[in-house]
């Protein structure tokens, strides 16, 4: 029996007019796997996320989410996807509850199920008591928690996180990193986490190092350390990207 694949990317390329942003990218993510996508600025991480979320059109290559082709079966594929974008995408003038209800409506969830799921996800993140507060009143860490809760409301199979901890203080960052890793383990959720913060990598994580639109390494942390002949992820990263700033 074939193992289930949450995300499959094959020979994906993308160009902005003459500049190649992604060049023949291929990788797979399985349920329960937390994959860290590391790369310096301009490596192609955001382009890759825009292609997976169908904000950009896939012209070369193939993307499948849980077996659904993102180009041919867009809606079925997107139903399997939860996303936390780098920039806050919450409506500042609406409450936590209103923002989450909007998301459940977009995913076609009825009121009863929506309220139940909102309670479950907010309670897991200790945010349920703050559900009637406006987003504007929350700090950066709490806003991120709401965004993670929102991304999980429709029970996606794949969670995409585009540098979700940027600009957060250390305790908030650690809490989010820990929570997402726990989700991958406990809920068998596939996670693709774009980051430039090497300390967010856990020993059991899967690593993809992207540089100038190409995959430089793809494997477990130990495998990447082995092929780069280094002892730390930081050194492996610098060795693969020739010291470009993350």
């Amino acid at each position: 029996m074939k193992p289930s694949i949450a995300l499959s990317i094959e020979n994906l390329s993308f160009s902005y007019s003459t500049k190649k942003a992604l060049d023949q990218i291929s990788f797979k993510i399985r349920p329960g796997e937390c994959t860290l996508l590391l790369g310096p600025n301009g490596a192609g991480k955001s382009t890759l996320f825009s292609l997976i979320t169908r904000l950009y059109d896939t012209r070369e290559g193939h993307i499948e989410l849980c077996g659904f082709d993102i180009k041919q079966q867009t809606r079925q594929a997107l139903a399997k996807l939860g996303v936390v974008f780098q920039q806050t995408t919450l409506d500042m003038d609406l409450s936590v509850m209103q923002n989450l209800r909007y998301h459940t409506a977009l995913h076609g969830m009825g009121r009863k199920l929506a309220m139940q799921r909102i309670q479950q996800e907010l309670e897991r993140l200790n945010m349920y008591d703050r559900r009637f507060e406006k987003i504007r009143q929350l700090n950066g860490g709490h806003r991120r928690r709401v965004e993670i809760a929102r991304a999980l409301l429709h029970k996606p199979a794949l969670l995409l996180l585009d540098e979700p901890t940027v600009g957060l203080d250390v305790p908030s960052r650690l809490a989010i990193v820990e929570y997402v890793h726990q989700l991958a383990t406990d809920e068998k959720l596939a996670v693709l986490w774009a980051s430039h913060l090497i300390d967010e990598v856990y020993p059991d994580d899967h690593l993809i190092v992207l540089h100038k639109g190409r995959i430089k390494a793809n494997g477990t942390v130990n495998e990447v350390l082995k092929i780069t002949d280094t002892a730390m992820v930081k050194d492996a990263f610098y060795s693969l990207t020739q010291g470009d700033q993350a």
Binding site: S4, A6, P31, E64, L65, C66, G67, F68, Q73, R75, Q76, A79, K80, A105, H107, G108, M109, G110, L113, R117, H154, K155, P156, A157, E187, K188, L189
Partner: peptide, 25 residues
Amino acid sequence: PGADLHLPEGRRAGQPCVNILHYWR
């Protein structure tokens, strides 16, 4: 596709993901 992965409650694998109620909501 996706049969053994997470699905929203009330839906089963193979059922169409969208229906009129989804559009309405």
